[in-house]
Design a protein around this nucleic acid. Structure first.
Lengths: 209, 209
DNA sequence: CCTACCGATCGGTAGG
DNA sequence: CCTACCGATCGGTAGG
């Protein structure tokens, strides 16, 4: 369908603009002009500005999963996969997957003070991401690569915070050492939890409930 | 002067709105309506919207210093003062110093993709803050409270990242454990650098240049 | 001449 | 996907 191709090209541009200027700064008129379309022609693909924002969030989520998370999930389960996810994230900002840095960091801080469906969609996407991080930590623990006392939710919180810190320093401050600093902090934090010698039975336990 | 009082009350409201809806979401008409003033009456205090935004940033900076940084600087130099700053920051989000969480976190992520004077002012305010954090770490090192190999810029980066992570989790995800998680991460990180026994000469060195 | 506003309106653009 | 529009609101300024 040509309509679907047009819709996808609209959303790709919308996501790029929103990563730079925010989901509210994304206006129909501006988007139409950049795409050399009429406002109403563009708008025929979406019922409202809110629908466009929601579709852009979903489009950004798919791009993030395809470009960052999925490739990293190819690494061996446990510590290597966890580090692969972290390195993939740090790479993703500098690589320009979104031109304005992390779309979701920008969207999270833009909408955390507003109610509504857009905020809920951003919160849901971030929940999925943090849960994916927790899972990677939990698997590393279950593989016997991390200290059994490791709290996956705590470590996921800390990793996510360091990602935000890297995005901030590299986007606002243009600090070329931002990525290295975050990488160093992550390596040191995970190393502090690492179990060096391999256990006889790496799978310590399975969920009982 | 009555004019100055009016200007200050405009800026206080402007800062509160901007912490919730962003510095671009802050509109003259809305601000005037909330203050029960005419737009033009309000506008007489500022030359342009950009001037209003710049004045709001400065007002927010003064509020932050008065409410967060200055009180913490009363703590004894070194490790106690560093921890006081960190605890003051974590307290500041939940205490509602700004109704939408940290004004500067929101502003940083809003403007990191735009050029101009507003972005520059936000970047400058954040530089001052990160430099204050670095100084607190450096003083703790010089007092002999932290490992002499401690890199103040690295630790300031990590602390700031954890603050952003706490703001994110508490504002967007309404996670009641956000502050505790950040506090735990900070305590553990600083504890890992702490020198427990007091030295004979706590002031290890002064800058030679 | 000043300040601190007012009601009304400027040229443009928003979402629809 | 278009032209042709709407009610409203945008940042900003007129005269009084």
């Amino acid at each position: 369908m040509k309509g679907e191709r047009t819709r996808q090209s609209i959303l790709e541009r919308a996501v790029d603009i929103a990563s730079l200027e925010g989901l509210e700064g994304l206006t129909i008129g501006r988007l139409a002009k950049e795409l050399q379309m009429s406002k109403s022609g563009l708008f025929a693909h979406f019922g409202s500005k809110e629908d466009l924002q929601l579709a852009a969030i979903e489009s950004a989520r798919v791009r993030f999963v395809d470009e960052v998370l999925r490739p990293a999930l190819g690494a061996p389960r446990g510590y290597p996969r966890l580090m692969a996810i972290c390195r993939a994230w740090l790479n993703y900002v500098g690589r320009g997957v979104f031109p304005g840095g992390c779309f979701f960091a920008a969207a999270s801080f833009e909408f955390d003070g507003r109610p509504g469906a857009v905020r809920d969609a951003i919160a849901s996407a971030m929940d999925q991401w943090v849960i994916a991080l927790e899972k990677a930590v939990r698997l590393a623990k279950e593989e016997g690569h991390l200290d059994p006392r490791t709290d996956p939710a705590q470590i996921a919180f800390e990793l996510n915070a360091l990602f935000f810190g890297a995005n901030f320093a590299s986007q606002l401050r243009n600090d070329p050492s931002a990525i290295r600093r975050a990488e160093k902090a992550i390596e040191q934090r995970l190393e502090s939890l690492r179990v060096k010698r391999s256990r006889t039975r790496p799978h310590v336990r399975r969920k009982t409930a």
